[in-house]
Design a protein around this nucleic acid. Structure first.
Lengths: 210, 210
DNA sequence: TGTAGAAGTGAATCATTATTCATTTATTGT
DNA sequence: ACAATAAATGAATAATGATTCACTTCTACA
């Protein structure tokens, strides 16, 4: 008798899987989920269409994983911002600012994650992902309430409002229908925009202008 | 020679067109855009598939019009709320409250208008529709700034934040993935939820708790 | 009643993509 | 080298649904 899966082989398979994911992600980054077809992914990854299905149960699963990966990084970033030193307000300010700036720097990907119409499985991921942000914010708000920097309130509702306010504020600038920001306008308005959003959000939380 | 379009005929055509629109809307109200196919619309309206195409250039056009109609009513409602007597804050409070309550009363339609993934033409309508709300809010904020009930701020950014905060707060409750609100929970939590959202929004604008 | 023109019909067609699977190619241990 | 097994291939198939169009039915008017 003969074939037994060897370490080398397991590694190669893992690499292929990774490459497929990376290529799928690249396509999303370039043109959103809409023009990332299985065939495209395969040809970019230099494998046959059928190979994709050796690694992923369906297109939806593949792209759900792409979504999760892209998202994990963003959530991680927010999480780290909220773990910096400072009171809850300062940390939330940092997190919101960084989130917005990162989105504006990778507009197509951000739009795909935040607002692009996607199929139901990916949409389910999106709901989770928004929930993940909201949970992080909620935690920070609770901490603020304990330490006294944020007045008593329904932390859950407030956190959802934060997510919504920032997401909506980015949709316009990010939306390809609007052409996104032109390169020229970009650097000029980004900071002002981010400032206004953050101001509104913090004020919504604290009831205090700065 | 013979046929000349008569008044009676023009009327009948208009009625058919209307009926098609109404049936399409009904389907959206029942199951969102996703399960509103041209064939379904035709059969519900008791016309042949081909007839749809006598009245609308394409499926996308048809549903874009459905979207516009549904939307017009909502925007109208907000507009009316903002035209009530009272200072800007009071009027905004009314508008936000009514908007949220109406959405929670027609959850499937609201979800379709606010958050369901839709094709690009309808998505373009959605952006306009969100813009329409934002514009109304922006106007009210400006009035508030003039009359002194709202402190100086970027009215444009703030209005977008309002739209986002309220939309996001509704997505969870409305989303069919979450099953929407169960009937039981519905009446219990609706008011609390709406209150929290509105509180956050007004505070975001004014920097003042109530 | 005849006929020119318009409206309505719905089965057939087209378009787009995801998915399959019979076949080929690679890998492993004897 | 060979047998046993797994991985890779990609053309063919399947599925979904929008759209068309040759034909039928209806309307208006002389």
């Amino acid at each position: 008798m003969a074939y037994r899966e060897t370490e080398k082989m397991r590694l190669r398979k893992a690499e292929n899987r990774q490459r497929i994911l990376a290529c799928a992600q690249q396509l999303v980054m370039e043109g959103g989920f809409r023009n990332a077809q299985v065939t495209q992914v395969a040809s970019l990854a230099e494998v046959a269409t059928g190979t994709i299905y050796r690694h992923f149960a369906s297109k939806e699963e593949l792209f759900a994983e792409v979504f999760r990966n892209a998202t994990r990084r963003e959530v991680q970033n927010v999480s780290e911002s909220l773990a910096q030193p400072g009171d809850a307000i300062q940390r939330l300010e940092l997190a919101l600012t960084r989130f917005a700036q990162r989105a504006l720097n990778r507009p197509v990907m951000a739009w795909a994650l935040i607002a692009e119409p996607v199929d139901p499985v990916v949409e389910a991921e999106r709901l989770q992902y928004r929930k993940a942000y909201a949970d992080l914010f909620e935690q920070a708000i609770r901490e603020g309430m304990s330490e006294g920097s944020i007045p008593a309130q329904d932390a859950g509702s407030s956190s959802t409002c934060l997510v919504g306010a920032i997401a909506e504020s980015l949709v316009g600038p990010l939306s390809p229908a609007q052409g996104g920001y032109g390169e020229a306008t970009k650097t000029i308005n980004t900071d002002t925009l981010v400032n206004s959003i953050v101001r509104f959000c913090l004020q919504g939380l604290t009831g205090t202008g700065r």
